[in-house]
């Protein structure tokens, strides 16, 4: 992996909730304009790691980190870094669709407006919804409440909402886990089409999804005898799934497949 292709890089990252160390010693390099998936058993700290990338962890008052996350040549956790600015550039899609209880249009336009978007909002909403593969379904009902959409549509709206302010990275925490297989497929297709312009990091429980949709895979596990999770293997996806370097990865991956 070439150094200038790396967009996010962690150095000895440890994440705590109070005294409890949830994630320890993570050293990975997330490549630019690729899809990276994070897999691993429940409770090993996947969401925790993901949320550290745009400082959403800070919303839990007791949490703090040690180590660094380098983005754009800067440690995201330096004292002079603004978390709001970080989230402006590194967007997020959550496990459950969480549209604002406002109109579809407003959901897409809101963030652009608060960030001082000067172009035509109508145009922005349209192009963003097209990119999120939702335009055809909602173009006639833009003024309707976003809550009237189906779960899958809501989730694509949440992707559109994140896209509207053109972040460089989009973090997705099990974006399809609350959706049916068809809606899941749509999200996966959407990810592929976005890869051209965005870096995507996705947490998933679904091995097929990771194998199918991602370019790189990080495998997380609890460190033996502790409750702290760490990345035990990080490589190109087909390598992780066909020739895993770690016995535990092999067990997990094949166990899930079988």
């Amino acid at each position: 992996m070439l150094q200038n292709d790396v967009i996010l890089e962690t150095h000895d990252l440890k994440i705590y909730y109070g005294d409890f160390k949830a994630v320890t010693d993570v050293n990975i390099q997330i490549p630019q304009k690729r899809i990276t998936s994070i897999i691993g058993p429940s409770g090993c700290g996947k969401s925790t790691l993901l949320r550290a990338f745009n400082r959403m962890n800070e919303l839990v008052p007791s949490s703090h980190i040690e180590g660094e996350i380098i983005f754009d040549g800067k440690n995201l956790y330096d004292r002079d870094v603004d978390p709001v600015q970080v989230r402006y550039r590194i967007g997020m899609v959550f496990q459950r669709p969480n549209p604002f209880p406002k109109s579809i249009y407003e959901n897409v336009a809101w963030a652009a407006r608060i960030h001082g978007y000067k172009g035509s909002l109508d145009e922005l909403v349209e192009t963003t919804l097209i990119k999120a593969a939702l335009w055809d379904e909602v173009k006639d009902i833009l003024k309707q409440s976003a809550l009237s959409l189906s779960g899958g549509q809501q989730q694509r709206l949440c992707v559109a909402r994140a896209l509207a302010i053109q972040p460089e990275v989009i973090l997705m925490d099990e974006p399809a886990s609350a959706l049916d297989p068809i809606a899941t497929l749509k999200i996966e297709e959407l990810m592929q089409s976005l890869k051209e312009n965005y870096t995507i990091v996705i947490v998933t429980h679904n091995m097929q999804q990771a194998a199918r949709a991602s370019d790189y895979t990080a495998m997380m596990m609890l460190v033996e005898g502790t409750r702290s999770g760490t990345v035990i293997e990080f490589d190109e996806t087909n390598k992780v799934f066909t020739r895993p370097g770690d016995k535990r990865t092999e067990d997990y991956v094949t166990g899930r497949f079988g």
């Binding site: 959403m56 959550f94 459950r96 969480n98 604002f100 608060i114």
Partner: peptide, 26 residues
């Protein structure tokens, strides 16, 4: 719901922007 606040923060909104546009109306 907390998820609404997270949605707002995830878009790079400030605390007051989240409070004013999403928490208070609800």
């Amino acid at each position: 719901p907390q998820s609404l606040r997270h949605a707002g923060y995830g878009l790079g909104a400030t605390k007051w922007q989240v409070t004013w546009s999403h928490v208070l109306p609800n």
